Simulated assay, not measured.
Amino acid sequence: MKELATIKDIAREANVSVTTVSNVIHNRASRVSTETVNRVQSILEKYNYIPNMNARSLVNNKSKLIGVFFNQLTEGTLFESPFNTEILGGVDEILKDNGYYLLVRSISSISEIQQVLKTWKIDGVICLGFLVNDVIDLERSINTPLVLIDIEVDHKNSRSMHLTVGINDWEGSKIATEHLIENGHHNIGFVSYPIVSGGVIERRYLGYLEALNNHGVKQNKEFIFEYDKTKVSLAEFCDEIVKKIDDITGLVFTADYLAIEIMDNLKNKGILVPNDLSVVGFDDIVMSQFVSPKLTSIRQDIRLKGRKAATLLIESLNVDTNQESKKVELPIQLITRESVKKFKK
């Protein structure tokens, strides 16, 4: 098998110094002539040159490796959710453009992140789906730049520097609920994974409650359905919804993926959307456009969320001085399709 070319081999053939080749590889060739840059790049392409990341890490103490950690308890199986894969796609786009690599891990506790950081040389961390108190504990124990996705932080009263990317989950769920109310629905349920204090689902639950209150619609606690997949099957969970089907006309979901799963299960039980039950989802994943009926949903740009998180992290890695906290809040939008029935007033 032919051995891979080294940076010394490239320099020898191009008749330049190793430093010049390194500058071309790392886009630091402002003082190198265009002719020399083109010659070096041509030889790099000829040999399909791949930089030795281990050697580079030893020289500059940078691994070019970014850790992305999902909360296994709230996000479930890592690649089961289209939301997760869209986030990763956005993160990967930015990291690839900046010469970084991904280490992806689903974990069940913050201590696992700490262990990974002890085992691997990781330049920066992106966390998704954790509670803010857990993340604060993590920040206190590491010196690695950190960006939080969908983790609500009180920037004004926090003593730490936080980089966060998210949306107004409260407002999104409020809009979803109001859409049902505006279409004549007054017996509206809420469907989610377990509601945990301080998490995304709680914020969406509070938005649902605010919409009911603002429009004088009475809340019924029996219309709150929390799906804990560790305790019941999806079919068993749907049976609980079916028991209330005569009392409920509409459901607000905290995730499209869950809405689509339940719509399909209810269809097998003879309950059709929107004739028997109206549904509004959240996220507007691609699948929402292709199910039947097409799902009305609160749109957020999931891939952009991943790109923004990665961009914040890259910016943090490129700044030597202490940064101020920065919060990026992306827009949301109601996308109306076919899953909501309008009642005559």
Rank of each mutant, 00 (worst) to 15 (best):
N60R: 13
V125C: 10
I167T: 07
V37P: 01
V116W: 06
L330Y: 11
K345C: 04
F343L: 14
R203F: 04
F70K: 02
S192H: 09
T177S: 08
V21W: 00
I151N: 01
V104Y: 12
H215D: 08
K229E: 12
G306A: 05
H185Q: 11
L272C: 05
V280E: 07
S17P: 08
N213Y: 11
R303G: 06
Q289R: 14
I66V: 15
D320W: 02
S292F: 12
P51G: 09
G207S: 10
S192M: 10
Y47N: 07
V200N: 00
N60S: 13
N60Q: 08
V165C: 12
L148Y: 06
F83R: 06
E261M: 14
L206V: 07
R105W: 02
N52I: 07
W170L: 13
V104N: 06
V191W: 01
L73K: 15
R39I: 07
K342W: 04
V328G: 06
V328T: 13
W170P: 00
V328L: 10
Y101I: 04
S106M: 05
L277E: 00
S30C: 03
D276N: 15
V24Y: 05
F253K: 01
S106N: 15
I260G: 01
D247K: 15
Y100V: 00
N27D: 10
L73A: 10
N213I: 09
S316G: 08
R303H: 11
D92M: 07
S278R: 06
C127I: 14
V68R: 02
I181V: 07
I110D: 00
G250T: 08
K267F: 09
Y47H: 15
S316Y: 04
V273R: 01
F79M: 11
Y193F: 10
G89D: 13
V165I: 09
C238P: 02
T119L: 09
D256C: 02
L102W: 00
T336R: 14
I126V: 13
S17V: 05
N27I: 05
V232W: 06
T321C: 09
T19Y: 06
F225P: 08
S109T: 15
E329D: 11
L312W: 03
N213S: 14
N84G: 00
N157S: 12
V273M: 03
N71G: 06
G281H: 05
K96P: 01
D247P: 01
Y227D: 04
V59L: 10
N220A: 08
G250Y: 05
K8Q: 09
I224W: 10
V273F: 01
D134W: 03
L251F: 10
